[in-house]
């Protein structure tokens, strides 16, 4: 069938284009503008070319922060996705338990990042925090301000506590949409609990898991507030992620050029990795033989 072709249709998408331009494209272009110039204040700019990009890519500080980011995101996904699926599987499907569980799951998502940070900061303190004191009584001197491992554990536990719910809710929505007939057929086919999970539930969760993985990856890769509030990037630089470094550089040191270059690299890394995740997850399970 011949598709009708009418350029006036562009007017229909114009509002979205304007909105996106103001919210994304124009700020991004500003950053691009900063990244290729140098300034000493007073709104006087000098052309710098790719200098800042080269500097950033050669800086050890950048690679170290990027490495920490990758490790952090990997750990977060490795914990939150399986845990989220497990919790969703364990949630009740009917009765009074459903709304109770849903509300409990939604609660952490409603709490602002900095509040979560403050909660855990106080909770973990060795002098007055419930967790810190109790652990100390057991002989474990938990101290996130001095011990890098403890700092990492704190940041990870905090993120798992805050965001596993999102994966749970997405998976739960996916699970309840599976028709009963699948489970019934599987019982008649003599499928084990594991086979039901592997061949019915997991394939049907594929699409929600794609969303969950993308959201959690992007969010965890941009982690800022929690480590900023709890550890301030320390001890030393051990919890200094790209975003923390970036803010230090841009607002603390007012190095707009290098900060802008770093932002763009940061942005491109997230874009590229998200694309890889998306492609891998949508390509698996396709019929290679037919190429569909």
């Amino acid at each position: 069938m011949e598709k009708p072709w009418n350029n006036k249709a562009w007017f229909l998408v114009l509002p979205v284009i304007v909105l996106v331009a103001f919210s994304a494209i124009i700020p991004l272009m500003t950053v691009v503008n900063y990244s290729v110039q140098d300034t000493f204040g007073n709104n006087v700019f000098f052309w710098a070319g790719t200098e800042w990009f080269e500097e950033t890519l050669q800086s050890e500080r950048f690679w170290a922060a990027l490495g920490r980011n990758l490790v952090f995101s990997f750990i977060i996904l490795a914990i939150e996705v399986p845990l989220g699926i497990a919790v969703a599987l364990a949630m009740p499907r009917k009765g009074i338990g459903v709304p109770v569980c849903l509300v409990l799951m939604a609660l952490p998502l409603l709490i602002p990042w900095n509040v979560v940070g403050t909660i855990w900061q106080v909770f973990g303190r060795i002098d007055i925090g419930l967790l810190g004191r109790v652990l100390a009584d057991f002989g474990i001197y938990y101290n996130y301000t001095q011990n890098p491992l403890h700092a990492w554990i704190t940041v990870i536990v905090m993120d798992v506590w805050h965001w596993t719910s999102l994966v749970v809710l997405l998976c739960y929505a996916g699970l309840v949409s599976i028709p009963d007939a699948y489970y019934q057929a599987a019982r008649i086919d003599g499928a084990s609990r594991w086979a039901v999970f592997r061949y019915i539930q997991l394939p049907k969760l594929k699409h929600v898991l794609l969303i969950a993985v993308l959201l959690r990856f992007m969010d965890s890769f941009m982690i800022y507030t929690e480590p900023f509030v709890v550890t301030g990037g320390g001890p030393g630089n051990t919890t200094t992620f790209l975003s923390i470094d970036l803010v230090k550089m841009a607002i603390g040191q007012f190095d707009l050029g290098p900060a802008a270059a770093m932002s763009i690299i940061y942005f491109l890394i997230i874009l590229a990795l998200s694309y890889v995740f998306y492609t891998v997850m949508t390509q698996t399970g396709r019929d290679r033989e037919t190429g569909r």
Binding site: Y182, Q184, A185, I188, Y199, K204, G285
Partner: peptide
Amino acid sequence: IAQVFQFPVIYDTMSVFDNLAFPLRN
């Protein structure tokens, strides 16, 4: 006993062969 439902139930990730083999392998 076997049962065939209103909506076709197939195991999406498996090939046609594996679908048919599933009850036997179980």
